[in-house]
Write a protein that binds this DNA or RNA. Structure first.
Length: 577
RNA sequence: GUCUCCGUAGCUCAGCAGGAUAGAGCACCAGAUUCCUAAUCUGGGGGCCGUGGGUUCGAAUCCCGCCGGGGACACCA
């Protein structure tokens, strides 16, 4: 157990062994609920287990009695300084300093790989952003981008093989509207009046943002007036493809500015043109889950133009949805949902049994049917992480509108104002499914109010010490580390592997941000303890052995800070001046 | 009307797949700076965890109702 990275997992193994000796043959679902957790209160030791309370009823024993039995067995284990029963049946464990200190060489040898989960040899696909290719990214997309990216990193850290994917919705009516809006800019670039044309467009010019002006100009330069007064059929596809590819370039630039890189960009159009939709639906047809039918009108307020229609429907109610969902319109063409089924089928077919979609909260009504579809397709699991809306606040007032896009706060504007690190970290300080206010004032503050600075400052302080110190060594004698502040820091460090595991399983990258904040706090506390008590300073010229132990602790702190920041995609700064 | 997310300190939020005395930051009050970076630290006040039931050894956490807020609700993508 001494060499294990995750002391909590190792200790859980010991607890389960001890439990088996006391109460043999407990069912697996009971054992699965046994956990070994860090304690909140130092008076309760380093770790606590609920084993006795969980096992009491199925074993037909009194929890306190079982706890006493566990205490007896566990007290004899190497590395456990003290075990005691407490409260209704907790067993509190105090680890020997030797066991705790033995983790320092483990961290120093592993470097950034510390906390890396064992390879699960399991692929997982995380789809995020997937903004329509009709304009620049805005703050609404930003949250999904940051959460999806950090979640991907987290899953990788936990041992999954992750594919980061972007789904380009380039097959629907929206990209046609984009093409028409670009056509208007094209006419303007040719110094022609677009009014007459706009009259002929059903919805008018949908995308009026100034960002389309250069696209219109580029088309004017490329084609001259060749398409100036010709029917849509002549130019619509050409303009659409041109505009979409330019939009994707722009979106990739926006993402790059945030430090987000996808592995795969999937095109809806390509999927549709290759017959992917029918291929995907084939699986469902084979299972008899597609039928022709008429949906009930929605309960409550019925839309005015509602009329019964016979359509092809997917029996999603078989898999927990509220009503069956249309996959084809009354004219026979496929709905967006059909395309999306096909897309998810495609992801499954590429070898990913587990899928994650990071979506905006406005897709909330969509998750049941998509989960139903995936379950029907592969029996696999689809997790949907919904990101609630972000309101950007400045001086207590909501900020809105951008010059270029015309409707929303552009992602670029936000990054230009506060930088990618603050944007990422602050977004990750909130759970994705809670609404959040993004406070520009706090993001720009260089104080404790701003958690990014707080954490980066801790790392910079580590580096500052290490620059002035002899090289750290995993071979040092760490037994001189005894101060409460030092041990508190060490105790925090060893929870990192467990945190990675838990945060990944619950798909909650925000836990990493909170962990880093607490780790930084422990480090700042130790640092300041050294101000009051010079004996606690890291570098002591006349005591090389103690200095070596302490720089080991500092180096380990820097390693964990850095790997946590790497998960969040935030730069670990070397110094702050 | 249905579905879904949310409601924790004056403000912004955590609370780790039910667990011990509910935690941070900001704001407020009182302290620490000849020092490895005070962009930091130490201490203090401040809570019917929206509300009413239920489940159990134990509920902020799980279940049901209600109140309040966000979002989505036939062929749009």
């Amino acid at each position: 157990m001494m060499q294990d990275e995750n002391l909590f997992a190792a200790m859980r193994g010991d607890v389960l062994n001890a439990l088996d000796a006391l109460a043999p043959g407990l069912p697996p679902d009971v054992l699965a609920r046994v956990e070994v957790t860090p304690t909140k209160d130092a008076a309760h030791g380093d770790m606590a287990t609920n084993a006795a309370m969980i096992a009491a009823k199925p074993a037909g024993k009194n929890p306190r009695e079982l706890a006493a039995g566990l205490v007896e067995v566990l007290s004899a284990r190497a590395g456990i300084a003290k075990a005691e029963a407490a409260g209704p049946g907790f067993v509190n464990l105090t680890l020997s300093p030797a066991l705790l200190l033995a983790q320092l060489p483990v961290i120093l040898n592993a470097q950034e790989a510390y906390g890396q989960g064992a390879s699960r040899a399991r692929k997982i696909n995380v789809e995020y952003v997937s903004a329509n290719p009709t304009g620049p990214l805005h703050v609404g997309h930003c949250r999904g981008a940051v959460v999806g990216d950090a979640l991907s990193n987290l899953l990788t850290k936990a041992g999954y093989e992750v594919t980061k994917e972007y789904y380009i919705n380039d097959a629907g009516a929206q990209v046609l509207a984009l093409a028409r809006s670009v056509y208007v800019r094209y006419l303007e670039a040719l110094k022609l009046s677009p009014e007459a044309y706009i009259e002929t467009v059903p919805g008018g010019m949908q995308y009026g943002g100034a960002y389309l002006i250069p696209i219109g100009e580029a088309l004017a330069e490329k084609y001259g007036d060749e398409y100036a007064e010709t029917p849509e059929a002549n130019w619509l596809d050409i303009f659409r493809d041109f505009a979409v590819s330019r939009m994707m370039v722009m979106i990739r630039e926006d993402l790059a500015a945030l430090g987000v890189r996808h592995d795969v960009f999937s095109s809806e159009r390509v999927l549709v043109e290759n017959g992917g939709v029918e291929r995907g639906l084939q699986v469902l047809r084979g299972k008899g889950l597609i039928y022709r039918g008429i949906l009930e009108p929605p309960k409550g307020k019925t839309p005015e133009d509602w009329e019964p229609r016979e359509q092809e429907l997917f029996r999603s109610t078989e898999y927990g949805d509220d009503v069956d969902r249309p996959i084809a319109k009354s004219d026979g063409s496929f709905t967006y949902f059909a395309n999306d089924i096909a897309y998810h089928a495609d992801k499954v077919a590429r070898g990913c049994p587990d899928l994650i979609d990071v979506l905006g909260a406005d897709h909330g009504g969509y998750v049941k049917r998509m989960q139903a579809a995936v379950k029907a397709l592969s029996g696999g699991r689809l997790d949907v992480v919904l990101c609630q809306i972000v309101k950007v606040m400045k001086d207590g007032e909501p900020v809105k509108m951008s010059k270029r896009a015309g409707t929303f706060v552009e992602l670029r504007d936000l990054i230009d104002e506060v930088g990618p690190d603050a944007v990422r970290f602050l977004i990750l300080m909130r759970k994705a499914d809670a609404q959040m206010d993004f406070d520009l004032n706090a993001a720009l503050a260089q104080t404790r109010e701003n958690p990014v600075f707080y954490v980066q400052y801790a790392h910079a302080r580590c580096r500052s010490v290490l620059r002035a110190a002899p090289a750290s060594s995993a071979e040092a004698d760490f037994s001189t580390l005894t101060a409460p502040e030092e041990m508190a820091l060490l105790r925090r460090l060893i929870t990192w592997p467990r945190l990675v595991e838990q945060a990944a399983e619950s798909r909650e990258p925000h836990r990493v941000a909170f962990f880093l904040y607490e780790l930084a706090s422990d480090f700042h506390a130790l640092w300041n303890a050294g101000r009051e008590n010079t004996a606690l300073r890291f570098l002591q010229d006349d005591k090389p052995a103690e200095t070596a132990a302490r720089i080991g602790l500092v180096a380990a702190t820097a390693i964990v800070l850095r790997s946590g920041l790497a998960v969040l995609g935030v730069n670990p700064v070397e110094e702050m001046r």
